[in-house]
């Protein structure tokens, strides 16, 4: 079972490495959106410092949502997904492997890029640390929850817009606790409670989201 997990994850990572432009679109989307806000709002550093947590988290949310469409779509088109559904290994594990690979390709780069962009917003080093931690806990949860939406909209026309409608309301708790952690740290309250809640959300979605996503895949491919 574990070898199936590793094999599928390795395959997905290899495929992503072979098509590197996909990998960079998500990252550049994040960078550009974050850099656009100062242009729209003005270079006032005090304002920027205030809105930074929200801007970073909303941008991460949108970037992870943009990437969702590719999570199952390629495998669905070339028929590999059907083979996965037929495989003797539990679908739960396979979905988890795919989501993990997807997060490593689209989520982790954002987490690594965030502190660099945070400097543009004049965040303190402490707040930057909490931001990285919150993104590290939050973006996998986003990928997991998003997998349900991606599986439900597999092969539908206008799937991309539809995914956003289905998934964004479910993202709200992650957004609240993620940006709340950074904000609480920046204002000196300490973001530990938020971080714990993010961790709880991650654990819960690790347990439940692959189940729901596999059920959704079976419905969509049937």
């Amino acid at each position: 079972m574990f070898s199936a997990f590793r094999t599928l994850m390795g395959r997905d990572l290899l495929l992503a490495m072979r098509r590197r432009s996909d990998l960079f679109t998500t990252l550049f989307f994040f960078v550009i959106v974050v850099s656009l806000f100062p242009l729209g709002i003005g270079p006032e550093m005090n304002t920027l410092r205030l809105i930074a947590p929200g801007v970073f988290w909303v941008a991460a949310l949108l970037a992870s949502m943009l990437a969702l469409e590719r999570l199952f779509a390629v495998d669905y088109e070339d028929g590999a997904l059907e083979q996965m559904l037929l495989a003797p290994q539990p679908l739960f594990v396979l979905v988890l492997a795919k989501v993990t690979a997807h997060w490593l390709v689209t989520g982790l780069p954002l987490v690594l890029m965030a502190p660099l962009l945070g400097l543009q917003y004049d965040l303190s080093s402490e707040a930057l640390g909490v931001m990285v931690l919150s993104l590290l806990l939050g973006t996998p949860a986003l990928s997991l929850i998003g997998a349900i939406g991606a599986a439900l909209t597999l092969g539908l026309r206008g799937g991309g817009v539809l995914v956003s409608l289905l998934v964004l309301p479910l993202y709200i708790p992650v957004l609240i606790f993620g940006s709340g952690a950074v904000e609480a740290t920046a204002s000196g309250l300490g973001g530990q409670g938020h971080i714990s809640m993010l961790g709880a959300i991650l654990v819960l979605s690790l347990l439940l989201a692959p189940l729901a996503a596999s059920a959704a895949l079976r419905i969509s491919v049937e």
């Binding site: 439900l152 909209t153 026309r157 799937g159 539809l162 409608l165 309301p169």
Partner: peptide
């Protein structure tokens, strides 16, 4: 959430 359900049904 309601609108998401309706949109999915419609699609």
């Amino acid at each position: 959430l309601y609108l998401g359900y309706l949109a999915l049904q419609g699609a």
